[in-house]
Simulated assay, not measured.
Amino acid sequence: MNTIAFFGATGGCTNACLAYTLLNGYNARALARTPSKLTALLLTQPGITQKIISNQLEVIEGDATDVESVKKTLIISTDSNNTCTPVSSIISGVGGTGIMSFTRETSCQNSKFRVPALPHIELDNPHITEQTTRALLAALEQIAARFSSFEEYRAVAPRVTVISTTGNLPGSKDVGFWFRPMYNVLLPIPHADKLQMEKLLDKEAELGGDGVLAGGLVVVRPSFLMGDHLIPAREGEKEGQRVGLKGVRVGTERDPAVGYTIPRALVGKWIFEEVIRHGGAQWVGEKVTITA
């Protein structure tokens, strides 16, 4: 059975994906600054028990910006020759905590102060996804260096899936028309961080089989996220914004699926079904837009 590594697993999309992963019998490893917070959140998911967590999930305490913590999460075991066995797949949904702000910092180099501005979302760390992406790539590079040849690493390199966002295409053409003003005013700071993450991954992915992303990269761009982390208690259940995968429309950067919102738990389910259960081969190299 494959082992899946999770980063940002206390976030709604990733927590739902982790819940589906555990409920379907997979083993998982998750990096968390506060393991008790992650465990408590998982125990609110329908069907998740302490026994499932104890048997199938290993939680590593640490920070996703720390290369050693990330590397520890990605390595399942090490043999006597210091050759390691990495996880088969990586799911990352790291993002900053959003804070509504009505001021902005001036661009003046000599004097920094804040002035009134239109309402917008600021992040507790506006570079968090960029920093965690750098740490992930550095950790994978160090793991690859432990193999006697890059061909050996390539054979077991994990597939990497990251959760990004719609709204970064020119003209926001992957966003519903009536949401475009809101995206432009409210979300430029978190979107800039996600875009920087994508640029770092794109640069590495260009190396193809000669890079640390030799296992393949999938970028998931959901439309505006709604709801919480909770998955439906029963398959096919509709409760509020919780709808099934049949209600999801999927596109790529070349032909995006344009919509307005999608439930967080549904994003997690799509990633589980398409990437974990079915391998995600058809989405490798794509920036996948999903909307409900």
Rank of each mutant, 00 (worst) to 15 (best):
S148C: 08
S172N: 15
P190L: 03
P158D: 14
N184K: 15
T165G: 11
I163H: 01
T165S: 15
F179N: 02
A139C: 05
E122W: 00
L186T: 06
T166R: 05
E151S: 12
G171M: 10
T161D: 03
T132H: 01
F177G: 03
Y183Q: 03
E151Q: 11
P170C: 04
V160H: 04
G176D: 02
E141S: 15
F179H: 00
I189L: 09
R180S: 04
I143N: 00
L169M: 13
T129R: 03
P126L: 08
F179D: 00
Q131V: 02
I163M: 03
R159Q: 09
L186C: 07
A157D: 02
P126F: 06
P181C: 11
T133K: 05
I189D: 03
T165K: 06
L169E: 10
E152V: 08
F179V: 05
R180E: 04
E152K: 15
D124F: 05
G176Q: 01
R154W: 08
S164F: 02
S148F: 05
S172A: 13
R146A: 07
G176K: 02
H127P: 00
A139E: 01
G176R: 03
L136V: 04
F177S: 07
H191E: 10
T132N: 09
G171Y: 07
S149Y: 05
T132Q: 07
R180D: 03
E130M: 14
F177M: 12
N125T: 09
R159V: 10
E122H: 03
F150P: 04
S172P: 02
A157K: 04
E152T: 12
V185K: 14
